[in-house]
């Protein structure tokens, strides 16, 4: 299908985009890579009066390291992020999640910010951001605010973004040099929406106990969930994978949809959490082996 007729605006600076959005609010929609909005426009699920194309704003396409965080502009494409040495080194969990996002052809145009703005429950980039405890930087005419990712996502396709705000950047904590990460996912076909995805970052102390741990699960509830894992800190690493998978499954309320039952999602959660945790532990031990 073809979209409804819309006014097209292409600002060259973020300030211009923010001013336009401030004037038009709900009547306008932001277009970046168009990998989500394009289909919604063509299917006429979205019928905006105006489209504000932010794909040619240079400031939104930068990746920068600032003391303890990496800032990725909202307009950085998924394929550019995947190729970035900074992302590989400083935000490895994102680098592991990106090959699961859509396909080669859609990653070439789809953006990090677009995925976060859309907030699909099974999306990998929001899951990585929530697992890391990153943040979303929002810009409006009123100024800039920073919302922790764990608060930003409210439910399926719902976020804290107000109608006059543009996602300007994502803020990723730089990973500790000795941290280990893993990402696991099951979808009907590679590149499709995840049925369940699990992401894990951890660090072990010299006695093989868990020093730092974060665990995220996507596709199970309406938003990506960071599982509370404090009770696992300082425990011997050898015994945590199975316990964590039971713990995660017990603390999530799975969705049911046309393809998968809630019980199946719970079963997948257990498998994928165990897989992600075990593989992060393997990496941690290999790293230690290299050091000894």
């Amino acid at each position: 299908m073809k979209p409804v007729a819309f006014d097209y605006y292409r600002p060259q600076a973020l300030s211009e985009a923010v001013a336009l959005l401030s004037d038009m609010g709900d009547e306008a929609t932001i277009l970046a890579g168009g990998m989500t909005l394009g289909p919604m426009l063509n299917l006429r699920v979205a019928r905006p009066r105006a489209v504000i194309d932010i794909s040619r704003i240079p400031a939104l396409k930068t990746i920068s390291v600032q003391s303890n965080v990496v800032l990725t502009g909202a307009g950085v494409t998924q394929s550019d992020a995947l190729r970035s040495e900074v992302i590989q080194r400083e935000v490895p969990l994102l680098a592991m999640a990106l090959p699961w996002v859509g396909h080669f052809q859609t990653r070439n145009r789809g953006t990090l910010g677009g995925s976060v703005a859309h907030a699909d429950p099974s999306a990998e980039i929001p899951l990585a951001l929530v697992t890391y405890g990153g943040a979303v930087v929002l810009q409006s005419r009123r100024g800039q605010r920073r919302v922790p990712a764990r608060e930003f996502f409210l439910g399926a396709l719902m976020t804290q973004r107000r109608s006059d705000e543009i996602i300007a950047a994502l803020e990723w904590p730089r990973c500790a040099p000795n941290a280990s990460h893993a990402f696991a996912e099951i979808a009907q076909r590679h590149g499709d929406f995840a049925i369940v995805a699990a992401a894990c970052s951890l660090r072990l102390d010299t006695l093989d106990r868990v020093e730092e741990l974060s665990l995220g699960v996507g596709g199970v509830e309406g938003r990506p969930i960071a599982v509370a894992v404090n009770s696992f800190l300082r425990r011997p690493a050898g015994e945590i994978a199975a316990d964590l998978s039971e713990h995660a499954a017990a603390n999530l309320t799975p969705m049911e949809d046309h393809s998968v039952s809630a019980d199946y999602r719970t079963a997948l959660t257990k498998v994928l959490v165990a897989r992600a945790v075990s593989s992060a532990l393997d990496v941690a031990r290999q790293r230690r082996g290299h050091l000894q």
Partner: peptide, 13 residues
């Protein structure tokens, strides 16, 4: 130079 969909972008862009 990049392989992309031409149905989810607009001539305007």
């Amino acid at each position: 130079g990049r392989a992309v969909r031409s149905c989810t972008q607009y001539a305007s862009q």
